[in-house]
Design a protein around this nucleic acid. Structure first.
Lengths: 118, 118
DNA sequence: CCGTATCCCGGAGGATACTG
DNA sequence: CAGTATCCTCCGGGATACGG
């Protein structure tokens, strides 16, 4: 019953007392779209339009807002190429790429637990 | 540069094409409080009042809503003891406990990346 | 003690139109 | 193409009061 996650539980227990790192991660991966942005960029840099299409086409405003927030938190970088038509490329920083551990855990859990009902 | 998360990236890439398990996990761990509920219950079953106090005292309505959602998704169970005063205990199911992998990844990331600025 | 019932508000997020 | 500018909607979540 407790053969699988007991080690993690211990870490979790001893680390939980206060704020704990979970809140910190939640502050980065907040909102409905942020996690999906990171997921998409984990497969490589993408430009605005492609990124937007890859997720379910959120509004330009929303996507811009989230991207700016992630940029400000140093999760990704924004590179503007002075061309016409303009080209803007978003790319994860090392800090952003390190979120792959979290995303991977989420992916594994999601695959291991398909929704049974609803 | 890509020495750390390359394996995860491969899995992520090949699994991303469509819906992917990440959305499934996001559907469970949504909202501002859900993740914190799971975190608290990972250290063992808790009653309503203690659970509420352990997180930053969200409103009763909000906590109830989130708990009901998690119960409906079979992440936790709700046990009412017919006593007076009443006692209600919430406990993670096996499915709920399996989220410890995700929570642990979030904890590790949060601890490894304290906020540098703001 | 553990809720439910109301009322309310802020802000994430969408729709649309317009610019460099 | 990649935004910005507005306006608007929806709902997560808080506050308060009350009930079993």
């Amino acid at each position: 019953m407790e053969t699988n996650g007991s080690e993690q539980l211990e870490r979790l227990n001893s680390a939980v007392p206060r704020g704990c790192g979970v809140e910190r991660t939640l502050k980065v991966l907040d909102g409905k779209w942020t996690t999906l942005i990171v997921r998409e960029l984990l497969s490589g840099p993408k430009r605005f339009g492609d990124l937007r299409a890859a997720m379910g086409s959120p509004s330009a405003k929303t996507l811009t807002d989230r991207l700016r927030a992630l940029e400000h938190q140093r999760i990704l970088t924004r590179t503007v190429y002075a061309e016409v038509p303009p080209r803007v490329v978003y790319q994860l920083t090392e800090e952003g790429e390190s979120l792959s551990d979290v995303l991977d855990a989420m992916l594994r859990w999601g695959e291991a637990h398909p929704l049974t009902e609803d």
